[in-house]
């Protein structure tokens, strides 16, 4: 079998495929977020976010995205949504909160969009 040119980056509107390229960029950020499965890590982050960034060696773009709690910025900095969801959990943000933030709508508007997809 011929191995074809990998086509992970031909654009799908509003979508970043988390592939090897993104994995290389985002490892420190994702590794930090993975720790937030544990309650002690969540508390440590809240107590001193800057120290927690240093512990995992985040770059400045990753730190700033976290400070801003901005999911699109975190994705651009290599964040994977499954680990970012654990970051969001620290701040009790659910998937509709995250969806609204990324699409520039209110949470109610975002929920209405979901509901309309069922019509």
């Amino acid at each position: 079998m011929e191995i074809e040119e990998f086509d992970h980056h031909s654009p799908i509107e509003g979508t970043t495929l988390f592939d090897g390229e993104m994995a290389m960029i985002g490892y420190a950020l994702n590794k930090m977020c993975y720790t937030f499965n544990g309650a002690a890590a969540r508390e440590a982050y809240l107590a001193d976010p800057e120290a927690y960034f240093e512990k995992f060696g985040l770059n400045e773009a990753q730190k700033q995205a976290c400070r801003n709690k901005n999911v699109l910025e975190m994705i651009a900095a290599g964040g994977n949504i499954y680990y970012l969801a654990k970051f969001a959990g620290i701040f009790k943000m659910n998937m509709q909160d995250i969806g609204a933030q990324q699409t520039g709508t209110t949470v109610e508007e975002f929920k209405e969009k979901l509901r309309k997809a069922g019509e």
């Binding site: 799908i12 509107e13 509003g14 979508t15 970043t16 999911v71 699109l72 994705i75 949504i81 970012l84 969801a85 998937m95 995250i98 969806g99 990324q102 699409t103 975002f110 969009k113 979901l114 997809a117 069922g118």
Partner: peptide
């Protein structure tokens, strides 16, 4: 479903 990106909330019945 799609959770991430500007296309978050995409559903395709």
């Amino acid at each position: 479903h799609q959770l991430d990106g500007e296309r978050a909330g995409f559903i395709n019945r």
